[in-house]
Design a protein around this nucleic acid. Structure first.
Lengths: 251, 251
DNA sequence: ACTTTTTAATTGTCTGGCATTTTAATGTCT
DNA sequence: AGACATTAAAATGCCAGACAATTAAAAAGT
């Protein structure tokens, strides 16, 4: 592993890339200890702070972990689904908020993904999954529930639906998308939505899952998507009207 | 923004989290300049190297970029789909290689996701998408093509299928999964697979897309999944046989 | 008015050091 | 011999101060 002193990139970025490539290529195995910071500094012919910056970059991606003490050091981290999941949620959230992704586009992507696991969920759902979903439905029916709590319960419900597919890779890909987009959508629509109607749709989903009726689950998701999009349009239209009225006043 | 000196977490991790939270919450806008490293060091009451480690963590997630010079500094980065996409591919690749995800699980997830965009792709594909896919099919039919090139062309083909859905958020979510899993699957199956048969399936997909036949596209994808899984099982079975024979010899 | 030079601000890097944490070795007492 | 306390060593975490490199703006010169 070498770095190029003439490259325009920072040393720390180059060193991080070299180590990352070694991990991805399998040259560094899980739980294997990297050389100490002092040794890495000597190997790459840079100072210790520079090596540390490189290691922090890798730590930010959960590729390594560090331990202090005599037998401490930096170790290749076994990337867990939860770690990757947390990063995916942050990334998706920022992608949505920074790229002017329209409500329709986000909504479409979210439900397209969720429908993808409906057949698997219908086939493999366990009583546990159904129980989780029913518990969340009960919660969502409580009259005094705050909007935040309703939103959180909504996420848990859909997460259970995704997990029912019994495929961790699919859960990772989908849950990131769902969790990132759900709050955004709830934020937009919670002023106008009818909790009663959403709860009914959720109940319908659980019923179709229990009956292992994949098409029914897909239909229920499609209905929820349709309702959510209508809500979104209503909210957007109202905001536009408000703006227009404000303009008229100032004009 | 404050950090807790008694926390078990590193200062640099705490500072990175504080800034990251500010970005996610929208307190720091895109292209906004952060205070200089020296100012941040004073604000958080730590040294400059510690601040730098925090900034490198954020840079590793493409949340900020840095510029040198008089008007330089750290700026909130507009997270682009491509940046997020590259990270997703790395993460997915490591998740697959580090978590003993079975061939079946990976295969199932990949095709479930890809089928999710079939209806949208059928509805919105443009002549451009069809042309890209046909060009890749032509390439895949070349007799002297290396396995690596065939694999790369396969990725491009499926990427076009995903992009045809015309939803960047969906493309981001799917393309990461497809690109991470395709090479893995090709690696496993390329010894046994029939390029001719795969090309035929690809042609079928293009035809159904051109006809805007969503169900047909889904069926073609299901057929490809089925074939891929059979291949996977064959390869795994052969490997097991080889191992058994080796055991018999040594015994 | 245009070009060149200087200056200031900022990140990138290095040196050297101290503090803290953790394990292993050593010593001491029962 | 075994249990416990002490010490030593290794490693990361953190800091202070400095210099180099880069860049844009300000100043100076033509």
């Amino acid at each position: 592993m070498k770095i190029d002193p003439d490259s325009s990139a920072d040393f720390s970025a180059q060193i991080a890339k070299a180590i990352r490539d070694a991990i991805v290529a399998g040259d560094l195995m899980v739980d294997q200890r990297l050389p100490s910071e002092a040794e890495l500094a000597e190997q790459f012919d840079v100072s210790r702070p520079t090596v540390r910056e490189a290691l922090k970059r890798l730590a930010a991606q959960s590729l390594i972990r560090t331990q202090r003490g005599a037998t401490g050091g930096a170790f290749v981290n076994r990337l867990r689904f939860e770690d990757a999941y947390a990063q995916a949620v942050t990334t998706s959230t920022l992608l949505l908020s920074m790229n002017a992704v329209s409500f329709d586009v986000a909504c479409e992507a979210r439900y397209a993904l969720e429908r993808a696991c409906a057949p698997l969920s219908a086939a493999r759902r366990t009583p546990d999954h159904l129980a989780t979903m029913r518990a969340e439905i009960t919660r969502q029916s409580e009259p005094g529930l705050s909007d935040e709590a309703f939103c959180a319960s909504d996420v848990t419900f859909h997460r259970a639906l995704v997990d029912a597919a019994g495929n961790p890779m699919l859960s990772y890909q989908l849950a990131g998308a769902v969790e990132a987009m759900q709050p955004l959508m709830n934020m937009i629509t919670f002023t106008a939505r009818s909790r009663e109607r959403i709860v009914m749709m959720h109940q319908n989903m659980v019923a179709t899952l229990e009956a292992r009726d994949a098409l029914g689950t897909e239909a229920a998701l499609a209905a929820l998507e349709s309702y959510t999009r209508d809500l979104g349009h209503t909210v957007v239209a109202e905001r536009t009207n408000r703006k227009d009225r404000t303009k008229e006043k100032t004009a």
